[in-house]
Design a protein around this nucleic acid. Structure first.
Lengths: 339, 339
DNA sequence: CTGAAAGCGCTTACAG
DNA sequence: CTGAAAGCGCTTACAG
């Protein structure tokens, strides 16, 4: 545990330089194989792990990065985190989690974290409400950031889902069941994520030769409550939809609640398909048909991309297309009664 | 950002010793007020933050701690994390998150984290399946651990919920509605958490003069699937329950699914109350009556307790009783049809 | 009241 | 092939 390099050196009968070089696999070390083995053995016997602070101080690098998110409490985020953690581990990095609500816009928490050398960079998932401007004020002109899920004009360094393909797939599913009046319960208007999903929805309608009606599109956001309101608005207007694409699974759960309250049966009177799959989708009533997106890969890619950036490579804007969006059929979708 | 102590010293025209002492509020510093102010001003102007590695190396302390959990993807955990984060921040600590599944039993990940000085200690939430033995193998005889939610004989240092009171409250709610045949869908038998909750259930029955029937108690665990099985078993036997306490909200969601499949109406034919409140409980059908437990406080207490322990105070075993368990009435409970 | 200096554990250019 | 030494940025006992 608390073994030090000098202790290994002493027991192996060599200098600390050699120990350090052998342990780090320094290619310039041309120690005799015998010496090398002895050092390795002693280190193993003593259960040596390099002191983190010593190394960080010397290297001016923490080998840690922070994942900042507005919402840890989602299975979606858990996937992202798992991907990020594994990619980080593979590169010998540690992941630190920051809650975005602790980080008020305009605060310097992020700058401090890297300023004091706690982390080398960030993977940042912004809140839907965080404007491009507020985002910039947080990260300033700092290049040590990779945006995740969302991107913003004028800043390179992002890893996002293929939202167009995902939303298109969801919409096409309803189309293939025979639906013609398909509503969209989408995100807030200024969100780039929401815009991409709406684009996928529009694309599917267009390719099927279906008319896109503005009255069938609601842009109130991804919370259950927002989706409840959206359903009420949709049902107050005419023509009513026979199917609805909800651009987020949480919203879909709210939509089911609202439909139940209105006495509308799913799926016989209206079909509901949600963007994103998570375990509760199996346990709603009826169980939700969803489109599953590769969150794990987004997390992993983001970390890899950040580490590349830290090592000086130019920032990339990546769309994760593998594995592709996948339709998970459950019980909330069916052909329309009167097509 | 990358300002150093020497730079401040230079600009303020004093030695680094003075700067360090002033900035750390060292009481032995008897610098002139004027000097003190000048130093503070320069530090502020330069936006100084102490280099983390330098300090950690010198102090042999990372001021970081790890929160290890089997499951980040739960609003429950989010509360715990929020509590832990705020308490940590107040004490100038950083919280690092570890996923327990990355940490195989018998692995030395934990020991390495403290071995290399990345963190000073742990808050550890064990998985239900992790035996006392496996737990010990992970943390060894390390005192820098506070167990959270669960405890284990022979190890001090834990912060748990008042499971007895919580489960008792849930059971009493059904009793007060007039139920007499009340089932328990509990955790796995070897879990201390499960035992406490079962105790609370038994206590409520006992105090109400109701008979406790072994055939009405299932101990399959907290997953939705386990609870589905439990419902099937309960409905295969006689007498059937008119009410059921599910010792975890995820289980309750599974129970609702199983009851729906069996064609049993909730709450007219059976009442369901869940231990733990979270947002989906509002959106199930019917909406779940739950008992809300103080998770935030558990997280905060655990961190405070760990920091105390690190500073040499004896390890404590704490039960969080404030705020007390709280019944959240929704639509899944009602008086029995035939009492 | 303030400063010079040692040392935390590491890596790496340099010397031999 | 291997070692002595400097230095990363900090804190703190010690000296004056």
């Amino acid at each position: 545990m608390a073994t030090k390099l000098t202790e290994i050196a002493r027991q192996a009968g060599v200098s600390v330089s050699v120990v350090s070089r052998v342990l780090n696999g320094d290619p310039t070390v041309r120690a005799r194989e015998e010496t090398r083995q002895r050092v390795l053995q002693v280190a193993k016997d003593l259960n040596y792990t390099a002191n983190y602070a010593g190394r960080a101080l010397r290297l001016a690098r923490s080998n840690a990065l922070a994942l900042i998110t507005p919402n840890v409490s989602s299975p979606l985020f858990a996937d992202l985190l798992a991907g990020a953690t594994e990619a980080a581990e593979a590169a010998n990095y540690t992941v630190l989690i920051g809650l975005a609500d602790t980080i008020a816009a305009g605060s310097d928490t992020l700058r401090r974290l890297v300023g004091e050398g706690r982390v080398d960079g960030f993977v940042l998932q912004r809140h839907d409400d965080l404007s491009d401007q507020a985002l910039e004020s947080l990260v300033a002109n700092d290049a040590r950031v990779v945006l995740v899920t969302s991107r913003t004009p004028g800043r390179r360094g992002s890893v996002i889902l293929d939202d167009v393909a995902g939303a298109k797939l969801a919409t096409q599913h309803l189309i293939s069941l025979g639906h013609k009046r398909i509503a969209l319960i989408g995100g807030v208007p200024h969100s780039d994520i929401a815009r991409r999903r709406e684009h996928g929805y529009a694309l599917a309608l267009h390719e099927a030769g279906l008319r896109r009606r503005e009255s069938l599109v609601c842009r109130l956001g991804y919370t259950p409550e927002a989706a409840e309101s959206a359903v009420e608005i949709l049902y107050a207007g005419t023509p009513r939809p026979t199917g609805v694409v909800v651009a987020n699974v949480n919203g879909a759960i709210g939509a089911l609640t609202a439909l139940r309250r209105l006495g509308v049966d799913v799926p016989s009177e209206i079909s509901v398909v949600a963007y994103h799959d998570e375990w509760v989708a199996e346990h709603t009533w009826p169980a939700l048909t969803t489109v599953k997106m590769p969150y794990y890969e987004v997390g992993a890619q983001a970390v890899r991309s950040l580490i590349d950036q830290l090592s000086g490579k130019p920032a990339q804007d990546i769309v994760v297309r593998e594995p592709p969006p996948q339709l998970v059929l459950r019980s909330s979708t069916a052909p329309p009664k009167e097509p």
